[in-house]
Structure formats: C-alpha cells, structure tokens
C-alpha cells in the first residue's frame, strides 16, 4: 500500500491530490479511504463556525501559532461557498494563514461547498480522515460562515467554537438558527468594538438559563480583541487553545468522547450507505434514461412518486413491492 504509506509519512502531493479526488468523487479515492481508515481516530478535531466577517480565519491563524508552540502539528480545512451560478468558487481563507505556509508542521487546504448545505463540503469528513492519517495532531475545520444552519460541524468535530462579533445584529439570529446549541466554546471576537459588553451579557444570560449540571462542561465565553496588537492577541489565543485542549480532556473523562464518536460514525455510515446505494441507483437510472421516463409518468399522472420509488427499490434491493409500507394498503 504505497499510497497509504506516503500519506502516513505526510507526503503533501499525495495528500492534496487525494483530497482533490475525494472532492471530485473519484472511485479510487474511496479505496484510499478504506486503506487509511485503520490509521484514523487520533487527531483532535476542532470546528470553527460563525458568520462571515466574524474573523474566523484570523482566529484559525492565531490557533495554528498557539498549537505549534505546543509542538502539535496542525491541519486546516477552510471552506468557502461555491457560486450557485457558475459552479466556481473563490477560496480566500488561506490568505490569513500565510505566515505558516513554509512550516512543514502545518497543512492548509481550501474546500468549496460544491452545493452542500450545512456550512461544510461533502468531502470534508473524508478529508478529515486524510489529515488524521497523515498524523496531524490538531485539525481545524473552518465553516463557510453564512450564519445560517451551519450545524453540520458537530458531526465532524470534537470541539466546536462559535465565533461572534458585536454590532453585526446576528446575535438573535444565531440563537434562532440553533447555532448556539452546538457550541462548546464561545468566542466574542473584536471585543474592543462597541456593543461587545451587551453581546457578552446576552450570551452569559443564555448560558445561565441552560442550567449546566455541576459536572458538565461549563461552556466558556472568551473574548479576543484586535489582531493588530500581536502580543495581547497572542496571549488571548493561547488561552483559547488551552481551553480547547481542556475540553478534549473533559470529553475523555466524562465518557462523552464515545458518544460524540458514535454520533459522528452514525452520520458517516449513513452517508456511505447513501453514496453506495442511493447514488449508485440514481446514476444508473440517469444513465439508462429511466429517470426521465419516470418523470414523464408523473407528469401524465400515470403513477405517483411513491409507487415508482417502491418499484425501483424492490428491483434493486430484491424485495417484494410494497412490503416496507404494508400498513398503507
């Protein structure tokens, strides 16, 4: 397994090409994941989410420095949106992480959403496996930052950081969007800007209402000021990194690591089933033109979607028609 060996040795060309193949759903990429899977599970995966302009990339840049100081190797996956019009994407997160470019202990990769909802890209789960297998101690995943429903990150990370900034009017929005429930650590960025104290108060009230049990994770709220004051910024980020590591320890001690892993693998197996079964069937139907014919049957009211789907599923899954829905009849 030459490729697996090279990935584990951290060969950048092989790793970055494999991520590319995963994004493009190349069949050989799946084989590669099968091969490296036994070597995954060691990295601490950290999700960073928050609206656009919240300063996520600058924070990631700071965290890379902080973890490198602790001699941990770091992988970064930064996700930006694909244009729904052209299918192209402008990926600009790595701009803020340039100072680590020549550090061999850091690997940064930009991913486009390619139509995936939920703030991530479809390939992100597998890309995390790749960085994990290449031996990165810490994997930072930066979400798109549309501020809407970016909750998928919890299925992919151990620790989720929600970044908020004052004066963007997104506080209440964020609570509604359910982004608050996913946080393990809150960061109020640009905390020297007007409106920060109010935002902090709102957050703390909300956490108080949540009634965290005594042995539970206390849900820290941290503040970070201007990235232009390098010394102070560095100190704040160091303590953020400290809290992130503490959270991981908490997960281990409280046995929550297992339940998070279970949550993650459930999603993973469902995704894999979808890819191997549903995608297969769909591409098959598309290729032989049957999908089109099915659509016409609906237009002409010859049939209904469920009857057609049951026929297809029975054909492919070798079951009698209607069986899963016996109650219906």
């Amino acid at each position: 397994m030459e490729q697996t060996k090279k990935i584990r040795e951290g060969n950048i060309r092989i790793v970055s090409r494999l991520i590319r193949n995963l994004e493009d759903s190349e069949p050989e990429a799946r084989t590669a994941i099968k091969n490296i899977f036994p070597y995954t599970g060691k990295a601490h995966i950290i999700g960073i989410t928050g609206s656009a302009g919240a300063g996520k990339s600058t924070l990631v840049d700071g965290l890379i420095s902080a973890f490198r100081k602790k001699n941990k190797t770091v992988g970064v996956l930064a996700i930006d949106p694909t244009s729904p019009f052209s299918g192209g994407a402008l990926l600009g997160d790595r701009i803020r992480m340039q100072k680590h470019t020549e550090d061999p202990g850091v690997f940064v990769r930009s991913l486009a959403t390619r139509g995936a909802m939920g703030g991530l890209s479809k390939a992100v789960g597998d890309a995390i496996h790749v960085l994990d297998a290449m031996g990165k101690d810490i994997i930072l995943v930066e979400t798109v930052g549309t501020g809407q429903q970016e909750v998928d990150i919890i299925y992919n990370s151990h620790t989720v950081i929600v970044v908020l900034v004052p004066g963007m009017g997104d506080e209440i929005q964020a609570i509604k969007a359910g982004i608050m429930e996913i946080a393990d650590i809150f960061v109020v960025n640009k905390a020297d800007h007007p409106g920060a104290s109010q935002l902090l108060m709102e957050l703390k009230n909300m956490i108080n209402m949540a009634q965290i049990p005594e042995d539970g994770w206390p849900l820290p709220v941290m503040t970070v000021e201007s990235a232009f004051e390098p010394i102070k910024f560095g100190e704040k980020i160091d303590s953020l990194a400290q809290n992130i590591l503490k959270h991981y320890e908490y997960l281990v001690h409280s046995d929550q690591l297992k339940s998070r892993l279970h949550r993650k693998t459930m999603v993973e197996i469902k995704d894999a089933l979808r890819t191997c079964i549903l995608d297969q069937i769909l591409s098959d139907l598309e290729a032989n033109g049957e999908l089109d014919r099915l659509a016409y049957k609906l237009i002409s009211k010859e049939s209904d979607p469920y009857t057609l789907a049951e026929e297809i599923s029975s054909r492919y899954l070798k079951k009698r028609p209607g069986k899963p829905y016996q109650k219906k009849g």
Binding site: S16, T82, G87, G88, A89, I95, Q98, E102
Partner: peptide, 30 residues
C-alpha cells in the same frame, strides 16, 4: 473573480508573497 465566474475554483493568496510561499500553497491546494 472572472475565473470563479467561469466555473473554476480559485485560491487567491493576496499581495506580497514570496515564490516559496506560492510554490508550497500551490501544492497544498493541488
């Protein structure tokens, strides 16, 4: 922007890059 609108995925790395930074980034981004 034009490359994005043509359907390509574009990584923009900003001003003031050394050739070393550019080469490493190009490889990491494949």
């Amino acid at each position: 922007r034009c490359f994005r609108d043509a359907g390509f995925e574009v990584i923009y790395t900003g001003c003031h890059q050394t050739p070393e930074q550019i080469a490493v980034s190009a490889i990491q981004e494949d």
